[in-house]
Design a protein around this nucleic acid. Sequence first.
DNA 1: TAATGTAGAGTTTTT
DNA 2: CTCTACATTA
Length: 697
Amino acid sequence: MSRRCQWYNHPLDCSSSFATLQVLTVSQLNPRQQEAVRYIEGPSLVLAGAGSGKTSVITRKIAYLIEHCGIPARQIAAVTFTNKASREMKERVSKLVSKPASRGLTVATFHNLGLTILKEEHDHAGYHPGFSIFDAEDARALLRDLLMQDNQETGDEAGDAQMKISDWKNACLLPSEALSRASDEREQRLALIYKRYGEYLRAYNAVDFDDLIMLPVILFRDNPEVLIKWQGRIRHLLVDEYQDTNLSQYELVRQLVGHRHGLTVVGDDDQSIYAWRGARPENLVQLKDDFPSLKIIKLEQNYRSTRLILRAANTLIANNPHVFEKALWSELGTGEKIRVLRCRSEDSESERVATEILDRKLRSGLKFSDFAVLYRGNHQARLLEMKLQAYNIPYRISGGTSFFAKNEIKDAMAYLRLLINTNDDTAFLRIVNVPRREIGPRTLEQLGIYARARGIGLISALQAMGAASHVSERGLDKLRRFSEWLERTTQRLREEDPIAVIKQLFSDIEYDEWLHQNSNTPKQAQKRMENVWYLVDSLQKMMSPDPEKDREESTLEDAVSRLVLRDMLERQEEEDDDDKVQLLTLHASKGLEFPHVFILGLEEELLPHRASIEEQNIEEERRLMYVGITRARETLTLSFAAQRKQYGEKYETIPSRFLDELPEEDLAWEGMGDLDKEANQKRGKATLSALLGDLGD
DNA sequence: TAATGTAGAGTTTTT
DNA sequence: CTCTACATTA
């Protein structure tokens, strides 16, 4: 077994070696890591550079707490941001700690933890059991309706409103507080929308994603005795990727920890690339003030990359201001120089990368899956895709339309939500006419007016509505029929096997036929129906107990809400080890590693991106570049195009300033030799004129 | 209801 | 340029 193996993130590389390590939990770590694992006297912050084994520290600390400190697993909670990270963590813990000993351990995402709290304490928050969770699209649809209601104009602002409301919720501001802090007329208007949005959600017995964090925080604030109960339940809290927490998440952490010491957070300020969606890397610094006894431990030994790659990363990131100084070092070899490919056009850039991958694979006996191509924006993948296809190179693109974005899945989920929560009007509106029930917009409009006047849900409204209303006889009849069928199905759900009832539901509505009518090809229709059955299968799996995976029996309610949070158990993991070149955005690459990495488009306005230059937010772009560089284990290749087509027109580009920030002696430039100086001059001029422009204005 | 036309935009993404 | 969303038309 190679010594390096244990640090690799890929469970595939090392799964077999873990089983025997139980007793060795701490001893195989380096001194810094050991210190991080063993320190339990107070709150600690582990500043873990890229590739320094941070997941190992968390998982081994969990094992240490359980086996060495005798803390029951049920009193330990580890929190991550993504389901993927939490799945991986669970897997790795299970290899360190025996099943009975790890029983009751909580490893969850922030949102899942919030959901657990909210489910148990729903009455303190004014919610009923079985509440729905609105995803971003549901929330936007509701906001669009609200905006159109009083504005009688378009709901164009829905996206803006959603972002603003999300900001407010992330800061734990209630509508009234948002209103009193509103600085201009527009914010006031949005704050009023926020208020009504909240009222509607409550009427629907629904929460949105942000509520899953904010509502527990408010609930704990208002009910100290409930907080004490949860503090008693979680005695040690571990937080992964701490630099990605937003204000409300930090608040939740602070509440749960209270005045006690059981807190371990792991993070890297240099890998904070999500500030644009509310993450506050300042939370790392704040921690020192909030917990004066905070112990700070730095992990600087990198087990992933060659020295030259790390030197490039360190040199680049040194251009950012730092509160915590940190320099990665490595015992792995020096490695090859970092190559910089100068290309004539974006077309030749893709061409070059494709041929290069093919050439290197054949020459060095590598696999396609040893290569990854990273870029700033998704559109950059398109050209590359064509080239890869032309050379018959298999590839995998991250971030295609997700399973849950598919229409058939949204429909199916809406049916499920409606079964659990009749007040979920958004779900009702989505499927009331899917498949066709000849219930038109006019009928629904009238029903909506009736319901709104009385402040009740649409289904309640239609049950209460008499013939005297403005709804046509015909429309009312159709609606009634639908609601009665729904009522019957809900009833049966309580008496029979839920999965059987759900299967029956889809055959009742003849969903298969509907899909065939509304798909382009029979093949596609079949595929879509299979997706629905896959969903039902997942539900079934999630509901049935599995002692292997420490999973207890759960209700349909529970399973559906976890599904909305995309917390599907195992999904398409087998496909991952296919031998394919990986194409991903720099953002999506965080947390991953590859032997050979290409980063495309090192040009001003692209990387750093134009919007970031305008907002003067170069530092986050630099961190993005840093994340990209530190993904590489053995070789790193950067490229840029001298000319790029943008919106149909050709533009001369300027090489990225980040190229200047790398150690010159470690770079090997290739291609278009004489354009070298020209490009540099161009960049010099541009920077100069930008400077002059600033002064001039 | 489906099909065609046209205006407008055009980072990063998870839950 | 290319894709999306919405509106107008048959």
